[in-house]
């Protein structure tokens, strides 16, 4: 039996595919694939290794921050147990003092790193991170580092052991540069692969 409806549909088949998924769905897929890859970290090729390390950095600094926090808590606890009774011990912590007086090295540190970070971020922005599904990952890492840095800066005003905090802040800034470098390297690799392989297109 001739099915006129079927013939018509077949003739206009392409016109039936009118829906489009949300544009950032690929990022979610890529992020999940990335997570799965991180688990088996052994035996990876150079390009993938770069990506994996960038995640490990992410973890490493977290551990570093956690350890720094623990040390700070321990120090403060120790300090307050010994000096808690003396009011002079807490006065300094509650009064607003300019940062320069507490840790003159911090503003220096910030200006020194800021220009490098800015330059790398500008380089990174030249790539179409969204298309590669890397923008979210990068945003997340940057945001976590930012908030940790702000926390550390607050910590400076109350900590009895500012050297530890300043050291953690310096590590935070260094980590940021390291991550930026990793990202740039990954992007460069991708760019090279792109050049080697001409665009393949097919119809479905």
């Amino acid at each position: 039996m001739k099915d006129r409806l079927k013939d018509f549909v077949q003739a206009h088949r392409d016109e039936f595919d009118t829906f489009t998924p949300r544009p950032d769905l690929w990022q979610d897929i890529a992020a999940e694939l990335q997570q799965e890859e991180v688990k088996p970290t052994m035996a990876v090729e150079p390009e993938r290794e770069a990506k994996v390390i960038s995640i490990n950095w992410h973890h490493a600094w977290r551990y570093a921050a956690a350890v720094a926090m623990l040390i700070m808590v321990a120090f403060s606890a120790y300090y307050y147990m010994n000096n808690g009774a003396q009011p002079s011990g807490t006065v300094a912590a509650t009064q607003p003092v300019p940062l320069e007086k507490i840790a003159p090295e911090v503003p220096q540190l910030e200006t020194r790193f800021a220009s490098v970070i800015e330059q790398k971020e500008a380089q990174l922005r030249e790539y179409d991170l969204k298309a590669l599904g890397m923008d979210k990952e990068w945003e997340r890492e940057a945001a976590t580092l930012d908030s940790a840095y702000t926390e550390l800066k607050k910590e400076l005003y109350t900590t009895p052991n500012k050297d530890v905090v300043v050291e953690a802040m310096r590590d935070n800034l260094k980590m940021r540069i390291a991550i930026l470098n990793r990202q740039l390297q990954v992007l460069e690799n991708i760019q090279q692969v792109k050049k080697q392989v001409p665009n393949e297109t097919t119809s479905i």
Binding site: W26, I29, A30, L33, E37, E45, R48, A131, L132, G133, I190, V193, K194, E200
Partner: peptide, 11 residues
Amino acid sequence: EGDRKAQYELY
């Protein structure tokens, strides 16, 4: 081989 760019091509 886990090539993300190729996966994106297929996507």
